[in-house]
Design a protein around this nucleic acid. Structure first.
Lengths: 247, 247
DNA sequence: TGCCTTTGTGTCAAAAGTACACTTTGCGAA
DNA sequence: TTCGCAAAGTGTACTTTTGACACAAAGGCA
């Protein structure tokens, strides 16, 4: 193929995933360490990979998620496309690409996705694109490789917006959970405190959680009732969302 | 450059724009007719173009918008990336690409944007990528080239969501406008009726419109007061948005 | 038995939402 | 000149939602 004019430029497409998890106390993101390269300080990055020829974008993101976590068929939502020509401008990122990629100067556009998973369902696996993976507290993420910090921030903002229009938690919590855990989850996504009684009242009105006949055991305080999501109502609400500017 | 493995596939990146306008009565989208090709029935499409090497994604979308409408420096928001390998599967789309593109089988990923413009500010220009352009009623759009219909639907959904969290109208209406026009605008975006008195009350409480000392003239009914946006408050609200699930 | 920790619950006042109908203004036609 | 038409503009009563706030109950442990 011949490059005839400036329209005819080709690009690589990659996908990066912001995988959120919840440890019952704080929100975390699954980050990887890139393959080590001599002379390049280690830096954390979002898991991601170039997409294959026969894949669509969603499939590529699903593959990255599966390879890293083993999880399949779960909620994955697009954050957007990121693709500055100067996306790779940190010297260490350049060095890393030169060591690892065959065509280190090729322009790359990445399509980012985010997802919410239950941290306890599996152990992160090292994979073809990651030396190791670990759950990092959202509040501790200050710098990432390439433009991944910007992507992470967009994903977090999307998650915060989502909480106002859709139920959240189904994928982040185990099957049975306590109201405090749900409460904590909302607080850690939003980053501020929520009144306990008001939270409970609002949540119950949504009709998506229901009480089980089971209590916590062995805790040195009043044991909490367990709850589960009512999947049917949850899905209905996911679908129609809840408006409230209110027209 | 050599293609060594399936990761190394290159793609074309294009951008497509969903340009919304408002004719004081209904919502419209600026669509183009593709360059005519012998044997391919005309079909409308979103304006768009392949991106240039030195451009980032936002710049490319801005360029398409400017070339078509002359408008610059206005709100453009990303809808997302679309890129099925089978994106181009209608026979007429294939024929068209074969006639027009040098490499008609190259896989194309498109990054879509939407924007809101005041229809009266300019005349759409034919341009390098469009034989002609015209404003089509949102309700009349039933079929578009490639996957543009899907893109259009995503953009419209984004616009509807936006209306619940941010003020809308600044770019869609002229500098002075009547309350009914604003009201109609909201109704045509949302696709349903809104109570006149309640709409006015809510809108006024936002504090983003203010009454001018000027009335409509020459209308065969009670003349309407003109209003304008209070740009300062509008921008503040744009920035912080309004939540209302209410945590 | 007393202490510590977390759960779980109710009320009241303020704000917001919803539903609803009649008067006003200006033009134009009879 | 007056009558009719069409759209503008305005208020109220009722219901629902929000937001602020404090204390008793349960269970482990020392």
């Amino acid at each position: 193929m011949q490059i005839k004019n400036k329209h005819q430029i080709n690009h690589r497409i990659s996908t990066d995933c912001v995988i959120f998890g919840f440890d019952f106390n704080q929100l975390r993101v699954l980050l990887i360490e890139r393959q080590p390269v001599e002379g390049v300080p280690q830096m954390m990055a979002l898991p991601g990979d170039l997409i294959f020829e026969e894949e669509n974008l969603d499939m590529a993101a699903g593959r990255v998620l599966k390879e890293l976590t083993g999880l399949e068929d779960i909620f994955l939502e697009q954050v957007g496309a990121f693709g500055d020509p100067n996306r790779v401008n940190k010297p260490n990122d350049k060095k890393w690409l030169q060591a690892v990629r065959q065509d280190p100067d090729a322009r790359v556009i990445t399509v980012a996705y985010y997802t919410l998973v239950n941290m306890n369902d599996y152990e992160p696996q090292p994979s073809s694109f990651a030396k190791s993976a670990s759950w990092i507290l959202v509040d501790d993420i200050t710098e990432l490789a390439f433009d991944h910090f910007e992507i992470f921030q967009s994903a977090l903002k999307k998650l915060k917006d989502k909480i106002n229009t859709q139920p959240i938690g189904f994928n982040l919590l185990p099957e049975k959970f306590t109201f405090s855990q749900l409460h904590k989850l909302y607080e850690s996504i939003l980053g501020n405190e929520l009144d306990k009684r008001n939270f409970r009242r609002k949540m119950l009105k949504l009709n998506i959680v229901e009480s089980l006949d089971e209590k916590q055991e062995g805790v040195p305080h009043k044991p909490s009732q367990y709850f589960k999501f009512n999947e049917e109502n949850y899905l209905i609400l996911l679908d129609k969302g809840f408006n409230n500017f209110g027209f």
